[in-house]
Design a binder for these strands. Structure first.
Length: 433
RNA sequence: GUGAAAGUAGCUCAGCUGGUCAGAGCACCGGAUUGUGGAUCCGGGGGUCGCGGGUUCAAAUCCCGUCUUUCACCCCA
């Protein structure tokens, strides 16, 4: 019986695994150099954990199960609730700021489509316990730090920054009731994703008042900083929220990634829990869904039964990122799946025992080494195997060994070879080369 | 969850108005090559044509169902 892979999952054969590791290694390296510590949690949690923040529709997109004790569990679709739970549990003993990162494997029972599978990896970074927008800037910087490192420049991707707080006080200011905010956020979030007239109709459903709807459209349209400046009154709540946006942009400019970043009022983010700065990274062409998104969520720890501690963070999935990297030819096919430093070959199989002995010596010293499993192979075949295994050098044991205990070291890149004494070779290894 | 398109060898695909239609290239394995790899040439293995049912004398080919993939919608943590 042939059993196919499950819908929306991926098999990682060595070449794909190399790509996955390349991406994840980059995420981890950048996290660490930005001062984040790694954490992880269980891959399943109580189902309830994911019902706190969101409604039952979310639960439909969860893989859930009941264990033999009758507990309702779910495979994690995101790691932020786990983070909140873990931080809450030790909130009094954790040194602030808490800067944590994780690369969890997540599952969502959605219908797969471009850039979206049912099992994926997501880089998460969060800073907890810092009210200042410096933390938001740090999160965005680390995000850009990674994108820059993998070769995505300001002409490839844009960080679009906005503020849920600014939008909130603006909407309140024009008379929108608090209870309508979430509905409006959901519509505004679609601004860039829908044709202009469709969007305006949706907006009218939420905001029947033509005057107010017009003001909202104006607000969403103005993305030039001097223009926004003119619209915002001094000493208002709007001014406070707007200054946060300006400060984030200023910090990012100082940190040297200003080129990547713009204010974009159309960034809203779908979910209700954002409370301040929000941002998304998009490809310039705009063909793909968001590469990543994040923002400030000051109420989350409290919502999960903890104290009121501010937090800001970012999540980046591997699927869209990989598509973009491929489109930009930044992945290459050259990510190697195997690193062999020395392939040990014999010119005549009477030297076989020396081959195995030397390979063992090499490995004991921490070098990667391999050899042919076919004692009847000629040297030609063995060199072919060495090439296939991507070996950097070949050590050939032949007549020279019999005559003067010497080895032939062949560089597989340049084809140059030299004859060295067996013991000298081992000594040179100790020196690291 | 809704809609559309597609599924033939490990991969990319040809064949598809039913009747040598089970094929090509690449990949893989072996040989040419008993002390020198990547190239070239030659040879080989590998597919119940996604699966199930139907129509027919005859189905990879037509019809239905199903699964999977892709794309769009819903949703986006």
């Amino acid at each position: 019986m042939k059993i196919p892979p499950v819908k929306g999952t991926r098999d990682f054969y060595p070449p794909q695994m190399a790509v996955r590791n390349w991406i994840i290694d980059g995420w981890k390296r950048v996290s660490r150099r930005n001062g984040f510590e790694e954490y992880d949690g269980p891959i399943f949690e109580y189902l309830k954990m994911y019902q706190v923040k969101s409604g039952d529709e979310i639960v439909e997109q969860l893989f859930n199960m009941t264990d033999r004790g009758g507990r309702d569990l779910a495979i994690r679709p995101e790691i932020t609730p786990t983070l909140a739970r873990m931080v809450n549990q030790q909130i009094n003993s954790l040194a602030r700021p808490i800067k944590w990162f994780s690369v969890p494997r997540l599952c969502r029972a959605e219908r797969p489509q471009k850039g979206r599978l049912r099992e994926f990896f997501q880089w998460n970074i969060d800073i907890i316990g810092v009210d200042s927008v410096l933390a938001d800037a740090e999160v965005i910087f680390a995000t850009v730090d990674f994108l820059r490192e993998v070769g995505l420049g300001p002409s490839d991707v844009k960080v679009k920054i906005s503020s849920r707080k600014l939008l909130g006080v603006f909407l309140s200011g024009i008379g929108v009731g608090q209870e309508k905010l979430d509905g409006i956020y959901a519509v505004l979030d679609k601004k860039g994703k829908l044709p202009a007239d469709t969007f305006e109709e949706l907006l009218k459903e939420q905001v029947p008042d033509k005057d107010a709807a017009g003001k909202i459209l104006d607000f969403m349209r103005v993305d030039s900083i001097p223009e926004v400046e003119k619209l915002i009154e001094a000493d208002s709540n709007e001014r406070i929220a707007w200054n946060e946006v300006k400060n984030v942009l200023a910090y990012l400019e100082m940190m040297g990634v200003g080129e990547y970043c713009v204010y974009d009022p159309s960034i809203v983010r779908g979910l209700a829990y954002y409370t301040g700065i929000v941002f998304e990274v998009h490809d310039i062409v705009g063909e793909l869904r968001a590469i990543c998104g994040g923002g400030r969520y000051d109420n989350l720890l409290k919502d999960f039964g903890g104290p009121m501690v501010s937090a800001t963070g970012m999540g980046m999935g591997d699927c869209v990122l990989e598509i973009l990297l491929r489109e930009k030819s930044l992945l290459g096919d050259s990510i190697s799946t195997r690193e062999i430093e020395y392939f040990v070959a014999f010119a005549d199989n009477v030297f076989g025992s020396h081959v195995y002995r030397l390979a063992g010596e090499l490995r004991r010293r921490g070098f990667s080494a391999s050899f042919s499993y076919k004692p009847e192979s000629g040297l030609s075949k063995q060199l072919k195997e060495a090439s296939a295994q991507n070996a950097k050098k070949c050590v050939i044991i032949g007549q020279e060994f019999l005559e003067g205990r010497k080895l032939v070291i062949k560089d597989m890149g340049t084809s140059e070879q030299e004859v060295v004494g067996y013991d000298d070779f081992l000594v040179s290894l100790e020196r690291g080369g």
